[in-house]
Write a protein that binds this DNA or RNA. Structure first.
Lengths: 348, 348
DNA sequence: GACTGTATAGAAAGCGCTTGCTGCGTTGCT
DNA sequence: AGCAACGCAGCAAGCGCTTTCTATACAGTC
């Protein structure tokens, strides 16, 4: 029924071993023989059996990418950049690798499940993107998995995620704290003194780091923070909308709202507008990430640009062994403050 | 080094066959034996070797999802919905399946490459999302691949993509033509007579269908279309921005701009604003898809909502054999016109 | 011309798992 | 009590490929 290596070998009048070597190209095969084999492959429309070859060679050409939310461009952009670096040549069997994106939905269990699945597939590399969950047992479980993966020869890279202790996973970490600080500093410079903050889910590292940056800026400016000024929610538009209404209810005198990310900021803008407030005349708004749509918001969003595509590409190259990991296995990727229309001088 | 089935068997004092059957759960095993095996699995921290099991069983638990652009929420939302239906139980080996998203970047070659890779992995199912490329040889090549995949037992489902002739792939097709027609009818009803159209890349089915719907509406209203009113571009914000400037240059009297999708529409809005035109007072704008950010645009975008998540979920269930395919293997998924702030009565 | 070295191809032993078939002990039936 | 039927576990034969080791055929060397 299905064509196998042996069929190709028979047709090309060589041994299966030779066909395998032609296909993997890491062993001298005479040009004429190679040609004959290739022709046979073509004529029979032969497709290598991946599992069989993975079993025999004890490696596979699968590369796993874990994302928290595939519907969120934040992850989509990174995943896209990673895939761009993975598809190309650089390995065995024609160099084609299958980059697979796995959507954890932010759930710790699914994260572990996917890691197990990738371990089961003997993945060539695994790249984890986005913030981690701050839960000690879970973090330990993940670290243990990562260690096992590494032991089995799988390269592990973290992209936009804090380093995993007791692991030799390479980490490209976003400087969320620094970015958050810069952003709030900018607002303080404009004259804001009463700033609301819409944070992400409490248990995520990204959330904590951005919030810490924000608070550091407040502290440095001698502004005492009112606990009512912080609301937690998910990283989406709707959460931003609701959180903003809540913030307004708690303290109608706020002159600025800093959002956990751009989607949240968009929701915040909607809520402010519906409440009859002008942006930035009445309330300034700031986001984080600088996703493509942020520049099109009205007014365009002041935010912190994270080089998602660059970081993803780099992570991809490191995972493929085409770029040296940073010294110590850890690199910090900084964001860049983008001052745009949504932030301005506070009303008198 | 690595733990194998045999190790588990030895530890549990049973044969490897029994361990395998416990793990796959499709053969009667006495409860006490099962328990003993499970304990051994746990103690040894055993992880099944995917390739080996795929080889022996001639099937794998991989499900491939092909998308044109993973950074575009249009695809992200579908992929997310599909994965949601795939992760759960419903098969062998604990029912866990690895849903993998492959980013073709819209390139026909990469599409074929990924299909081959999935064929090579003996994927359990493959789901192709988004429009197809209208190129006869390529379409034939894809159809041939799909046929081979189906022959090998891989279930093939198309989601938001036209049916593939000579294939028994199940197709959930978006009614792009109908949606486009409705949208333009709406604008015509408002009184618009000079409508610019920013189409997607020429070779995509989605592009053609939406454009056909637009033209059908024009024709039905007896409006003769000026060839200058149509510009082609990519499905992104930037293309919309540039195309709009071009349209304005060609005919400054246009009172409406219909965009190929929401991202394009956002770019169009930006261009219009920069040109000093008010939306919708001077020019109305319409998009397509109704992505989450569209409602937050200012003014919010009139568009056609496509039930991406629902369609994706359904495609996922069909791919997993948990839902009956539609009669004839083809179903049309309709969009819904969402009239919002970006469309209005044309200026006098 | 005998000997060593090099280039290329083949034989065969698995890789770790699944599964058809066989075998045995036990229960159900008459 | 005797026989059939059944439930459960093991044996062993692969699944299709990779790779080590071996064999052959030359070309080069003194």
């Amino acid at each position: 029924m299905t064509v196998t290596l042996a069929d190709v070998a028979a047709r090309a009048q060589v041994s299966p071993a030779t066909v395998s070597r032609v296909l993997n190209g890491n062993y001298p095969v005479a040009a004429t023989t190679r040609e004959r084999v290739l022709r046979a492959v073509d004529e029979l429309d032969y497709v290598l059996n991946g599992p069989a070859s993975a079993l025999a060679a004890a490696t596979s050409d699968l590369v796993g990418i874990l994302v928290n939310d595939i519907a969120d461009p934040f992850f989509g952009i990174m995943a896209s950049a990673i895939q761009g670096e993975i598809g190309g040549p650089g390995g065995r069997a024609g160099g084609e690798r299958l980059a697979v994106t796995c959507n954890t939905g932010g759930s710790p269990e699914r994260e572990l499940t996917y890691l197990t699945l990738l371990q089961r597939q003997r993945a060539a590399a695994v790249i984890l993107t986005g913030g981690a969950v701050e839960n000690v047992p879970h973090a330990a479980a993940v670290a243990a998995k990562l260690r096992k993966l590494a032991d089995a020869g799988t390269r592990v890279v973290l992209c936009g995620r804090p380093p995993a202790p007791d692991t030799d996973a390479v980490a490209l970490t976003f400087d969320n704290r620094g970015g958050g600080k810069q952003l709030t500093e900018h607002l303080i410079e404009l004259g804001h003194r009463r700033l609301g903050y819409i944070a992400g889910p409490e248990e995520r590292t990204t959330t904590r780091h951005r919030l810490e940056g924000h608070r550091a800026a407040l502290a440095a400016a001698g502004i005492e923070e009112d606990p009512r000024w912080t609301v937690h929610g998910r990283y989406d538009r709707r959460a931003g909308y609701e959180a903003t209404l809540e913030l307004l209810r708690r303290d109608p005198t706020l002159t600025a709202v800093v959002a956990a990310n751009d989607s949240v900021a968009l929701g915040a803008c909607a809520a402010l507008r519906e409440s009859g407030l002008r942006i930035p005349a009445d309330v300034s708004v700031a986001g984080f990430d600088d996703l493509p749509f942020s520049i099109d918001a009205v007014p365009s969003l002041t935010t912190v640009r994270l080089p998602l595509a660059e970081a993803g590409a780099r992570a991809g190259r490191i995972a493929m062994g085409r770029e040296e990991p940073p010294p110590g296995g850890i690199a910090t990727v900084r964001g860049e403050l983008m001052v745009r229309g949504s932030s301005g001088v506070p009303r008198a």
